[in-house]
């Protein structure tokens, strides 16, 4: 029995807990991508750098708060600064929408054109972030680091394996849960949320029934900016903030959104966790795990690793390509597209 428990704890420590946190971050980012796709009908390549911008705004205020000795220990100060980051990012997104995207809606440009426009926006965000905060690695987490460390866990449980649970991981999962619940409430219960869904399902019909399209678009940007900032700040808290890594997040986020079916919020969440779990689970070496389950002489000698970690980042792309080929509308996608 101990063997089984140890194996389970081992897997939790290295696969389940980290993947849950990473998956939550991806899921929130993918939600933003998918919402923009559902309403504005294009794939937003600026998403990664929007997240970087939001995280940057949050960090700047966090530093100010830390300087003033404002703290909500044991929780990280960044949580206090998060609303400020969200407001900054909302302002930025609304400005960019007004100056850039609105024109293309008026002329009814093709989605491909909008996608290329978003590449231009990505360039600009990319350099703005570096102008303001620089390209370096920034570390802004404070407060209690762990909910429970591996060592404490071992002491309390008496098992030979421990599971560590970081505050930031706990926060990430908790906040992701709240955000998702709030978003679904919003989409299903409020008037504007319902009109967004109507607009997404059938634009012409929605317009006929008197929905103000600009209002829908504004709301979408506000929600997307909020999601992006939360995802970006949580990612920065959990790992560390460096502008370059946010650009690299773009493809996993797209993969998550597409795997779940672009335009489908539930799918985005499922996609985020699918990508995170498969990246970690496929490259994990199962030797120790199996050694706990299988008695002595049968235990495997090799690493029992399906794929070398060299190819870890290819995993999300492979899943992406497979899903596109086998089920282009995604796991939860609607039939027509």
């Amino acid at each position: 029995m101990d063997g089984f428990l140890n194996a389970l704890i081992l897997l939790s420590n290295f696969v389940i807990v980290p993947s849950m946190a990473y998956g939550s971050q991806l899921a929130i980012g993918a939600l933003a991508v998918t919402l923009i796709y559902a309403i504005l009908r294009f794939s937003d390549f600026a998403q990664g750098d929007t997240m970087a911008f939001g995280a940057m705004a949050t960090i700047l205020l966090t530093w100010v708060l830390q300087y003033w000795d404002v703290s909500i220990s044991p929780l990280p100060t960044a949580l206090l600064a998060l609303p400020f980051g969200v407001l900054c990012t909302i302002a930025l997104c609304l400005l960019i929408d007004r100056w850039v995207y609105r024109f293309y809606r008026r002329v009814k440009a093709r989605p491909e054109v909008l996608m290329i426009v978003s590449v231009g926006v990505m360039f600009i965000y990319n350099s703005v972030v570096r102008f303001i905060i620089g390209p370096g690695d920034r570390w802004f987490v404070d407060g209690e680091r762990f909910i429970i460390t591996a060592r404490e866990f071992k002491r309390l449980s008496g098992l030979s394996e421990g599971v560590a649970f970081k505050t930031t991981q706990g926060l990430t999962i908790l906040i992701a849960f709240i955000v998702v619940a709030a978003l679904f409430c919003f989409l299903n219960r409020t008037r504007i949320g319902k009109s967004m869904r109507a607009y997404s399902d059938n634009e012409d019909l929605a317009l006929l029934s008197g929905i103000d399209p600009e209002r829908v678009v504004r709301t979408t940007w506000i929600i997307a900016a909020t999601l992006a900032t939360i995802a970006g700040a949580l990612y920065g808290l959990d790992k560390s903030f460096k502008p370059f890594t946010y650009f690299n997040l773009l493809l996993p986020i797209f993969a998550a959104a597409i795997v779940g079916g672009l335009g489908n919020p539930l799918g985005a969440i499922a996609g985020g966790f699918t990508i995170a779990f498969s990246e970690v689970a496929l490259t994990y070496a199962y030797r120790k795990f199996l050694a706990y389950l299988i008695p002595g002489e049968w235990a495997p000698q090799g690493l029992v690793q399906l794929l070398s970690t060299d190819y870890k980042f290819a995993v999300s792309f492979v899943i992406l390509v497979l899903v596109l080929l086998l089920r282009p509308t995604g796991i939860f996608g609607r039939k027509a597209s």
Binding site: P18, Y235, T245, N248, Y284, A285, T309, D310
Partner: peptide, 24 residues
């Protein structure tokens, strides 16, 4: 026990550490 690469600039290294730890 294992010689595994990690890519810079990616920020999430759970999988690498998992493999390294399993190799011991």
């Amino acid at each position: 026990t294992i010689s595994a690469a990690h890519e810079d600039g990616k920020a999430d290294y759970t999988a690498e550490v998992g493999a390294l730890s399993a190799a011991g």
